[in-house]
Each structure stands twice: as C-alpha cells, then as structure tokens.
Amino acid sequence: MLSAGWVGFGADTMVDVIWITMPFLLAGLWMTFKISLVTILCGSILGFAVGMLRTVGGWLVSATLGIYIHALRGTPFLVHLYVIYFMLPALKIPWLQFEAFPAAVIALSLYTSTYVAEIVRAAIQAVPRGQSEAARSVGMTAAQCMWHVVLPQALKLMIPPMGGVYVIIIKGTSIVSVIGISELVRAGEHATQRHPRELMLIYGMTALMYFAYCYPVLRIARWAETKFGSVRLPS
C-alpha cells in the first residue's frame, strides 16, 4: 500500500482499518438490529389496528385514518423524525425528554404503520367475497366471519409483503443517525472521521452489512410469496 509509509496517524493498511473499525461497525449493526426489531413490532400492531379500523369502521373513522395515512405518506420520514424529536419534550413526560431512542422508534413505527395498514386492508379485500357470503349464509355474525374465515386467509397474504416492510424499516433506521443514535451509519461516519482516506472502504463495509441484513429478508419474502401468494405492497 502506498499509505504504509505515510507520516501521521493514517499509517494503517486496509486490513488494519478493517480490523480496527469492525467492532464499531458491528456495534452499530447491533443498534440497527434492535431499532428495526422494536419498530416492526410496534409498527405492525399500530398498522394492524389502523388497517382493521379502516376496513370495518364507518366512513368517518375511515376518512380520518385516510388523512393520517396520507399525511405520513406525503411527507419525508426525515420530517417526521425531526418533528417528533423536537416535539416530545413539549409533552413534558420526564423520560421522553430529548431521548433519541424513543423518538426514533415512535417516528419509525408511525411511518411503518401506514404500510402495514394498507397491506391489511388489501389482504382483507383480496379474500374472495364468496367466502364471507358463505360464512354469513351459515349464520355467522360479521365478527365471527372476520375472525374465523376472512382473517386466517388474509393473514397468509400479508406475510410476504411484510418482508418488504421489514426491509423498508431497516433502511429507514439509517436516517435516525441524524438525531444522534449510534446505529450503523453513525458508526460508519465515526470511522471515516478517524480514517478519512479509507472512506470508500468503510462505506463499502457499511453497505455490505446492510446488504447482509436485508437480502435474506427479501429472499425469504420472495419464497413466502410463491408459497402463500401475496397482495401488492403499495409504494
């Protein structure tokens, strides 16, 4: 390496840089993993509730939730993140004061819920009408029909697009670095400050780590799609 004989603190080879930065990047990946896991849980629960309410609720509920979805879909996640991060303190709840982690999870979960809600609605609508008509014809109530006939079939259709949502979340976590969470991108940025001449290497490693996390999820989602069928994930 040309850099080997260079004066100053940059006298590391590429292998050294990989060796030194790897623990930091892995710590970042661990944070990314934690945030994405908590978010898929919270976001799915919230999204399921919104999607169900939107499907079975009256027009007022449905329209209100429609506005909720459009408002979130129509603005960048970055904006949600800043608004929530700066607004939380105003709620005057002690343990939420300028805490980056809850702000990140709340913002990501709200964002995720819009996707999940759309998937839930599409999956329920994709169950053929004849199924619920048959259920009602044998005397089931609307709730029984939903619980015993429609939802079990719809759930299967929801599984594959949820893989896509999970990948969206993982990629979304990269943005929460701006409010100071030391996830993978942040770890990468720190590393580049120490080894500014190996910028490409470090960002390459970061990208590979995201790839290693996302790609299997996408593959599994594709496999699930051939097995269960799917509804289209709205973009």
Partner: peptide
C-alpha cells in the same frame, strides 16, 4: 438487488464521497 438491499443514505455517501 444491491439498490434494494441498502439504504439510500449509504448510496448517497458512497457516490458522493467515493
């Protein structure tokens, strides 16, 4: 595949810096 499996932010960094 590469684009779909990595965040846009990293893509921006890689392209702008690298």
């Amino acid at each position: 595949q590469a684009i779909r499996s990595t965040p846009l932010l990293i893509q921006i960094y890689v392209i702008y810096f690298s």
